[in-house]
Design a protein around this nucleic acid. Structure first.
Lengths: 115, 115
DNA sequence: TTGACGTATGCACATGTGTGCATTTATAGT
DNA sequence: ACTATAAATGCACACATGTGCATACGTCAA
């Protein structure tokens, strides 16, 4: 494959993987705090999580939904409780894919790849 | 190190690496488009980049500054022109660090790490 | 120094989004 | 069925941020 086409392909793959909801989910400090807290504390229901943050329960509920739709958290409904936990394996997979894309891009976009 | 301390440490490291400007920079679609375009087209100055987007030159200039401060782009000033290009190696390093953090977290936060 | 060009900044405005309250929906217990 | 509890949604509001215009800054060529 000639270099121009390789570059075009790399760019397309990069857009695919960067245009996800993942970055929008993680660009909000409160959501990062929630994800971090869940990492440390393990699975917890909405009210328990909300009780550890200054925001209202409804706000935390919305943030949890965004994190879940972005694939950061797992959601388990048991009775009238909804439990959330970090999706470690899922996030690892995502990051591996993104990393792979960047590895492909380095030799194409960076003529002098020192440092 | 006992499990609780390991969890606390993993959470702290996760917050460190996720609280960066990187995600805020990449959560804006226009900025992702700029980064993608630079990947495909190679280094270019501000006006050249701006000419390929509907936004005003001043807007593109601001986006480029944000991407640069986040470590996504490299900046090279030559005369009165300022050239930008993807920082492939830098991004690869960042992603490797983030991936490593998530790898550490998986066995701690996810009791049933199937799928 | 003057003028031209490339880039960055101040400002005002529109849109997006996090927030809290009131309310609704869903489920368990009685 | 009724009540209580958990979670989600509609709405309004405040703040953040992307946008464009006018303009200032910095550099090169004469």
């Amino acid at each position: 494959m000639p270099p121009p086409r390789r570059r075009a392909r790399a760019a397309r793959e990069l857009r695919e993987i960067l245009d996800s909801r993942l970055f929008r989910a993680l660009c909000e400090p409160v959501r990062v705090e929630i994800a971090t807290w869940l990492t440390e504390s393990g699975p917890a229901d909405v009210n328990t999580i909300a009780s550890h943050f200054p925001q209202h329960q409804t706000v935390i509920s919305r943030h949890l939904a965004i994190l879940h739709e972005a694939g950061v958290l797992r959601r388990t409904k048991r009775g009238r409780h909804v439990y959330f936990e970090m999706d470690g394996p899922g996030m690892t997979d995502r990051m591996e894919k993104i990393l792979e894309r960047f590895r492909n891009i380095v030799p194409l976009c960076c003529p002098s790849d020192e440092d």
